[in-house]
Each structure stands twice: as C-alpha cells, then as structure tokens.
Amino acid sequence: MEVHVILKVGQSLASTTDATALIVVRAPQGEIALTCGGAEMVAGRAGLGDGSGIDPERRSGTLLGKRYVDEETGLEVLCTKGGDGSLAIDDRSLQVKEAKPLPSSD
C-alpha cells in the first residue's frame, strides 16, 4: 500500500531499499506517493536499504547530482546520494532533467 504525503521544498528523503537520498527542489501541490526501487521513500538524509529489496522492474538506478522531474505533478528532486533503485510516482518513472543550453557569447 502506497502512502501519499505532502512534500516540502528543502525536505530530505531517503530510500528504504538502497542508499538513494534526495532533496526536494520543487514540491507538487497535493499529496503524492514517491517511491525508490518500488518502495516508498521516507524522511531522512541517508538510504536505509542494502539493495536486496528492490523491485527488479525498478532497478535502473539514480545518479548523484542529477535532478529528477515529474512533469505531471511538478515534482523536482536532486539526488544527493545515488543508488540502484529508480524513482517513481504512482508507477510512473521520474525522468532526468535535461540541462538547458547556455546562450552563446559571440
């Protein structure tokens, strides 16, 4: 059962399945169920799992320093510690935010 929570900007989240840790950069308006590796994330600064509980379909990983977004809800998080689990909201995978190209200085 997924638990829907209200996230706040600056909140630290930790995975319960691996070492993944995040900071909320942009929070959605309502409640969401954010998961990593198929299990819900909890408040905290360090991941709690060893990777053995990751859902095999949710094992694409998270990368340190990358921002992950969900366009539908407006959520944006920054990965502060990478891990093997992938991030999702309601079984919809979060995407790595693409860097915007800087304007040329010709």
Results as ranks from 00 to 15, higher is better:
87 L>V: 02
58 R>C: 15
51 G>W: 00
84 D>Q: 13
25 V>R: 05
63 L>D: 09
20 T>F: 00
56 P>L: 05
39 A>S: 06
32 I>H: 04
65 G>I: 13
8 K>W: 01
40 E>Q: 02
73 T>D: 05
80 T>H: 11
25 V>E: 15
70 D>N: 15
91 D>W: 10
96 V>R: 10
88 A>S: 06
8 K>N: 11
36 C>A: 06
2 E>N: 11
66 K>E: 11
74 G>T: 07
4 H>F: 03
47 G>H: 09
71 E>M: 13
64 L>S: 10
34 L>I: 01
33 A>C: 02
106 D>P: 15
34 L>Q: 12
97 K>H: 08
68 Y>E: 12
98 E>M: 03
29 Q>K: 04
64 L>D: 12
85 G>V: 09
2 E>P: 13
104 S>L: 14
15 S>L: 09
48 L>T: 05
87 L>A: 13
34 L>H: 11
47 G>E: 06
93 S>T: 15
85 G>H: 04
8 K>H: 03
82 G>H: 07
24 V>R: 01
99 A>F: 03
101 P>F: 04
13 L>F: 03
55 D>H: 07
90 D>S: 09
105 S>C: 07
57 E>N: 07
40 E>T: 00
71 E>N: 13
55 D>T: 15
9 V>W: 00
1 M>T: 10
106 D>N: 11
24 V>G: 03
36 C>D: 15
35 T>L: 14
62 T>A: 03
39 A>K: 03
28 P>V: 04
75 L>H: 06
63 L>I: 11
48 L>I: 14
95 Q>V: 14
84 D>W: 08
41 M>I: 06
47 G>M: 11
29 Q>A: 03
72 E>M: 09
80 T>D: 06
53 G>F: 05
26 R>K: 12
32 I>V: 12
28 P>H: 04
4 H>V: 00
46 A>W: 08
88 A>N: 11
99 A>P: 05
22 L>Q: 06
44 G>Q: 15
45 R>Y: 13
10 G>I: 00
102 L>H: 05
12 S>T: 04
15 S>H: 05
68 Y>I: 06
86 S>L: 10
41 M>T: 08
50 D>L: 12
78 L>M: 14
54 I>C: 06
26 R>F: 02
39 A>N: 01
64 L>Q: 10
100 K>C: 06
76 E>N: 02
83 G>Q: 07
82 G>L: 11
87 L>H: 06
84 D>S: 12
22 L>T: 05
